[in-house]
Amino acid sequence: MDTFDTTTLVQLLRECAGEEEEVDLDGDILDTAFEDLGYDSLALFNTVSRIERDYGVELPDEVVAVAQTPRQLMDLVNTGIAERV
């Protein structure tokens, strides 16, 4: 559990927040805004909190506001993992 990839993110999003019927999460979503994927801040709070627990990282409070896309969120998570002591 030392890197955080798209597959894992999609899996966690589905578990923590469900998925919008019209959105294909298995497609190329890396740079699609979370909003367009059907995820609001609550969905992301739930998902981020799960990531923090599963990966033993602490992400800043602002992560949900800062990370607008899956790629941005994954970068922040992977930075967190790299800095983990």
Binding site: E15, A17, G18, G38
Partner: peptide, 8 residues
């Protein structure tokens, strides 16, 4: 129901 509503 929409799937997005189920976890909440």
């Amino acid at each position: 129901l929409p799937n997005r509503l189920l976890p909440q």
